Simulated assay, not measured.
Amino acid sequence: MGQQSLSIEEFNEKLKSWTGKNIKITKREINDLDETVMALTSVSYTNNTRRIDDYVPEHSLMLNGEGEIENEDDEMEPLPAPIYEIPLNDEAEYSFNGTSFSLKTDRGTYSIEQE
């Protein structure tokens, strides 16, 4: 199955169906690759209408659950908080290929798959 473009509503609906599952989040930025594994307990969104600058995103996808993140030494360590935040913008692209989600923003590309 190829990549299927999704609306934010379709993305949200499908991702919420993974609640209770173990997921792996891979973030790709310019010269950076991070991996996080977590037990997804819920999916939520935030709106930050009182932004001081563009560094703070207007919207964020919040993946809630306990997990581990890969550090600079390629070792896994506990997440500092039981949440993984993905900053969103209005131009974000959402897709699903049957086994993993892809989310492209102005800051990077994220893939979410079941562990």
Rank of each mutant, 00 (worst) to 15 (best):
residue 3 Q to V: 15
residue 4 Q to V: 15
residue 5 S to H: 07
residue 6 L to H: 07
residue 7 S to G: 07
residue 8 I to F: 08
residue 9 E to L: 12
residue 9 E to P: 01
residue 9 E to I: 15
residue 9 E to Y: 11
residue 10 E to R: 04
residue 13 E to S: 11
residue 14 K to T: 13
residue 15 L to H: 02
residue 16 K to Q: 13
residue 16 K to D: 09
residue 17 S to T: 15
residue 17 S to G: 08
residue 18 W to K: 03
residue 18 W to H: 05
residue 19 T to R: 01
residue 20 G to W: 04
residue 21 K to W: 09
residue 22 N to G: 11
residue 23 I to Q: 00
residue 23 I to G: 05
residue 24 K to W: 02
residue 24 K to S: 11
residue 26 T to I: 14
residue 28 R to K: 14
residue 29 E to R: 03
residue 30 I to Y: 10
residue 31 N to V: 14
residue 31 N to R: 07
residue 31 N to L: 13
residue 32 D to S: 15
residue 33 L to M: 12
residue 34 D to E: 08
residue 35 E to W: 00
residue 36 T to E: 02
residue 37 V to I: 15
residue 38 M to T: 07
residue 39 A to T: 15
residue 41 T to G: 08
residue 43 V to D: 04
residue 43 V to Q: 00
residue 44 S to I: 07
residue 45 Y to T: 08
residue 46 T to V: 13
residue 50 R to W: 10
residue 52 I to V: 14
residue 52 I to C: 08
residue 53 D to T: 12
residue 54 D to W: 01
residue 54 D to E: 10
residue 57 P to Q: 04
residue 57 P to W: 04
residue 58 E to A: 15
residue 58 E to Q: 12
residue 58 E to H: 05
residue 58 E to N: 08
residue 59 H to I: 08
residue 61 L to M: 07
residue 61 L to Q: 05
residue 62 M to K: 06
residue 63 L to Y: 06
residue 64 N to M: 05
residue 64 N to D: 04
residue 65 G to D: 03
residue 67 G to C: 04
residue 67 G to Y: 00
residue 68 E to G: 04
residue 69 I to G: 07
residue 70 E to I: 14
residue 70 E to C: 08
residue 72 E to M: 14
residue 73 D to M: 11
residue 74 D to W: 05
residue 74 D to R: 05
residue 75 E to T: 15
residue 75 E to R: 10
residue 75 E to W: 04
residue 76 M to Y: 11
residue 76 M to F: 14
residue 77 E to R: 03
residue 78 P to T: 12
residue 79 L to N: 09
residue 83 I to H: 01
residue 83 I to W: 00
residue 85 E to T: 11
residue 85 E to A: 09
residue 86 I to L: 00
residue 87 P to M: 03
residue 89 N to R: 00
residue 89 N to C: 13
residue 89 N to H: 07
residue 90 D to S: 07
residue 91 E to V: 12
residue 93 E to S: 08
residue 94 Y to H: 01
residue 97 N to A: 13
residue 97 N to V: 15
residue 97 N to F: 11
residue 98 G to F: 05
residue 100 S to N: 09
residue 103 L to E: 03
residue 103 L to S: 02
residue 104 K to S: 09
residue 104 K to E: 12
residue 107 R to H: 06
residue 107 R to I: 14
residue 108 G to T: 07
residue 111 S to Y: 03
residue 112 I to G: 00
residue 112 I to C: 01
residue 113 E to R: 00
residue 115 E to H: 05
